[in-house]
Simulated scan of single mutants.
Amino acid sequence: MITRIGLLMRNENMTPEEFDRHWRDIHGPLGAALDGLKSYYHHTVIERGDHPILGPWDLDGLSELDFEDDETMKAAFASDAGQLAKEDLALLLSDMRILVCERHVIVPMAPDAKPGLKRMTLIRRKPGMSDEAFRHEWLDVHAEMMRKWPNVLGYNQNLVIDRFHKSTVESASPEEVPIDGIVEIWFENEEKAAEANESQIVQDTLAHARDFLSEITPFLVTTRKVV
C-alpha cells in the first residue's frame, strides 16, 4: 500500500472556512473519482503546536490518499480525472508539497475506539544521518518506546520514500521538501493526551526524538473521510 500525503497551503484570497468548504464540496468529489483509490481523507488543521525544535511549516490541511502501489497512483493522476483534480488545486491552493509514504502501523486502532483528538507531526532527521540509521532510530527504537505510551488509541509512522513540489512527475530533492516522516497519533481527548505527557516513558521518548531529529512540527487536525 502506498500513501500519498499532500501538505496544503490555501489560496490567500480564501478564508479558512472558504478553503475547507471548497475542499469538501468541490475538490473532494474530484479526488474521489480517481481510479484505483483505496481511501481518501481530509485533515483540516485547527492548530499548529509548539516544540523546542519546531520546523517552519504552517499548513491549512493535509490530504491523504491510499493506493495499492506506486504504478496505480501514478496512473490515477495521469488520467483525465487526475487532470481535473490538479486543475482545481490551482484555485484552492497557493502551494502544495506531496509526500509518498510507506505506512507502519505501530499501535493499531481498536474497532471500538472513539478518538476525539488527532495530531499529525512532520519530522526531519538530523543532517548527515543515513537512511538506514534514520529507519532504525524511528521504526525500531522509537516505535518500541511508543508502544509503551499510556492512553494512545492509535499510532502510525509514515516513512517518506518520495517527494514532489512543482512537478507531479519529477521527484523533488530532500532539500526542496525537507521532511522524512509524518506521525499520526490519536487520543480520546485532550485530558488523556495531557495525562500521558506526565509519564516517564513519554518524557524518555521525547528525549530520544531530539537525539535523531532536527525538526518536529505538530498539527492538531480534524479528519473527514471522503472515500
Score class of each variant (00 low, 15 high):
Ile2Lys: 01
Thr3Met: 12
Ile5Glu: 02
Gly6Ser: 11
Leu7Lys: 04
Leu8Asn: 00
Leu8Thr: 06
Leu8Met: 10
Met9Glu: 15
Asn13Pro: 00
Asn13Ser: 14
Met14Gln: 08
Thr15Gly: 03
Pro16Trp: 03
Pro16Cys: 09
Glu18Lys: 05
Phe19Gln: 02
Asp20Pro: 12
Trp23Pro: 03
Arg24Ile: 13
Asp25Gly: 00
His27Pro: 02
Pro29Trp: 10
Leu34Trp: 03
Leu34Phe: 08
Lys38Tyr: 10
Ser39Asp: 14
Tyr40Met: 04
His43Asn: 14
Ile46Arg: 15
Arg48Gly: 03
Gly55Asn: 06
Pro56Asp: 01
Asp58Phe: 12
Leu59Asn: 01
Asp60Val: 02
Asp60Ile: 00
Gly61Asp: 04
Glu71Phe: 10
Thr72Tyr: 12
Lys74Asp: 10
Ala75Lys: 15
Ala78Arg: 13
Ser79Pro: 13
Asp80Gly: 10
Ala81Glu: 13
Gly82Cys: 06
Gln83Asp: 14
Leu84Val: 11
Ala85Gly: 01
Lys86Pro: 04
Lys86Gly: 06
Lys86Ser: 05
Asp88Gln: 03
Leu91Val: 09
Leu93Val: 03
Ser94Glu: 14
Met96Ser: 07
Arg97Lys: 15
Ile98Cys: 12
Val100Trp: 11
Cys101Pro: 09
Glu102Phe: 10
Glu102His: 15
Met109Pro: 04
Met109Tyr: 07
Met109Phe: 01
Ala110Ser: 09
Pro111Lys: 01
Pro111Cys: 00
Ala113Asp: 09
Pro115Lys: 00
Gly116Thr: 08
Lys118Arg: 15
Leu122Gln: 06
Arg124Tyr: 08
Asp131Phe: 03
Glu132Thr: 13
Glu132Asn: 04
Glu132Lys: 14
Glu132Ile: 13
Phe134Gln: 07
His136Trp: 02
His136Gly: 00
Glu137Gln: 07
Glu137Gly: 02
Trp138Glu: 02
Leu139Pro: 09
Leu139Asp: 08
Asp140Leu: 08
Asp140Cys: 09
Val141Leu: 04
Ala143Asn: 01
Glu144Thr: 09
Met145Thr: 09
Met145Asn: 09
Arg147Pro: 06
Arg147Asp: 11
Trp149Thr: 04
Pro150Glu: 08
Val152Phe: 00
Leu153Tyr: 05
Leu153Ile: 13
Gly154Trp: 02
Gln157Ala: 11
Asn158Gly: 07
Leu159Ser: 11
Leu159Ala: 13
Leu159Gln: 10
Val160Asn: 06
Asp162Ser: 10
His165Ile: 10
Lys166Met: 13
Ala172Gln: 03
Ser173Pro: 14
Pro174Ser: 04
Glu176Asn: 09
Glu176Phe: 08
Val177Asn: 02
Asp180Asn: 07
Gly181His: 04
Ile182Leu: 07
Glu184Trp: 12
Glu184Ala: 14
Ile185Val: 15
Trp186Asp: 14
Phe187Met: 12
Glu188Asn: 08
Asn189Leu: 05
Glu190Ser: 14
Lys192Phe: 05
Lys192Thr: 14
Lys192Gly: 01
Lys192Met: 11
Ala193Asp: 13
Asn197Gly: 15
Val202Lys: 10
Val202His: 11
Asp204Leu: 12
His208Glu: 15
Arg210Gln: 14
Asp211Cys: 14
Leu213Val: 07
Leu213Gln: 05
Ile216Lys: 02
Thr217Asn: 09
Pro218Glu: 05
Leu220Thr: 12
Leu220Asp: 06
Leu220Phe: 11
Val221Asn: 06
Thr222Lys: 15
Thr222Cys: 08
Arg224Tyr: 13
Lys225Asp: 11
Val226Gln: 02
Val226Asn: 00
Val226Gly: 00
Val227Trp: 00
